[in-house]
Computed example of a mutant assay.
Amino acid sequence: MAELQLDKIDLAILRLMQSHGKLSNQELAEKVGLSASPCSRRVKALEESGVISGYATLLSAEHFQLSLTAYVQVRLEKHAKEILESFEATVSNYDEVQECCLLTGSDADYQLKVLVADMAQFKLFLLDKLTTHPHIAGIHSSFVLKQVKSQTSIPLPS
């Protein structure tokens, strides 16, 4: 992907797209002071350069009765490349896992963000899926009581 130098208009486009994803090209162009064609070309360049990595629709978990979020820290017995890759491939196939991060500076090797309906569903996920991986040495789960902040946008330079 080609390196793209972002100017003030590109950053304005990105800010608007992050917070108002359903804006039409015409609306986006008007808000940043361009006509539709140059705005469309800029968005296409941002996509082609990889600055915009994709598009998504954010759904309400509560609407689907997914009200329990757990952060699960997983420690593996060894750090061999094959074991790490095996664990990552396994958890990548679990729909309940929203995020999986390899950690440093912690007793855990991975942290998972898990979204399920309730404690009974979490128990099934934990016992029937997660703990069946042969190289897990320890698991610690924490449950979200209240979500204080959640955002999908990233901070952009001024």
Rank of each mutant, 00 (worst) to 15 (best):
D7S: 00
P155D: 10
T152G: 05
D7I: 03
A108G: 05
Q147Y: 07
S53G: 12
G138A: 08
P134H: 14
Q151K: 11
L126R: 14
D95F: 14
A56W: 01
E82P: 00
K149D: 10
A117D: 07
T152H: 15
E77S: 10
K129E: 14
L46Y: 10
H79D: 11
A36G: 02
N25S: 14
S86P: 04
E27L: 00
Y71E: 03
Y110S: 03
I139N: 03
H20T: 03
A12C: 05
L102N: 08
Q73G: 09
V97D: 02
E30W: 04
H20I: 00
S153P: 14
V97T: 05
L115P: 02
S106K: 11
S106R: 10
A61H: 01
F143G: 06
Q111R: 13
V114H: 04
G138M: 00
D10H: 15
R75L: 06
R15F: 15
A89T: 06
L112F: 12
F122A: 03
E88C: 03
A117N: 10
F122K: 05
S153T: 13
C101S: 14
V116L: 10
A61L: 02
A29K: 00
K129C: 06
L112E: 02
L28Y: 00
L23E: 08
V144E: 04
E88P: 00
V51F: 09
A12L: 09
C39R: 03
K8I: 05
L58Y: 15
E85C: 10
S153C: 09
K22G: 06
S153Q: 15
L115N: 03
R75N: 00
H63S: 01
L58N: 09
Y110H: 06
S106H: 12
L28Q: 07
H135Q: 13
V51C: 09
K31F: 01
S37G: 11
L102C: 08
R42C: 07
L127V: 11
L14W: 00
R75C: 02
V114P: 02
H20K: 07
G21C: 09
A56F: 05
D118G: 01
Y94K: 12
T90C: 06
A56N: 04
K113I: 07
V144Q: 02
S158V: 08
A117G: 11
L115V: 15
E96W: 05
T131C: 11
D95H: 14
E82T: 05
T152P: 01
E85M: 10
Q73R: 15
L126T: 03
S142K: 05
K149S: 09
L103V: 07
S86I: 01
K78H: 12
L127T: 14
V114N: 06
L23V: 00
T131M: 12
L59A: 06
I139L: 12
A70K: 15
Y71K: 13
R42L: 04
T104N: 13
A29F: 02
K123G: 02
Q18T: 11
F64L: 01
Q5C: 13
K123C: 05
P155L: 10
A45I: 11
N25P: 04
S106P: 01
P38Q: 04
F64Q: 03
T57S: 03
N93L: 15
L4F: 13
G33V: 00
S53P: 01
A70D: 12
L34M: 06
G50A: 10
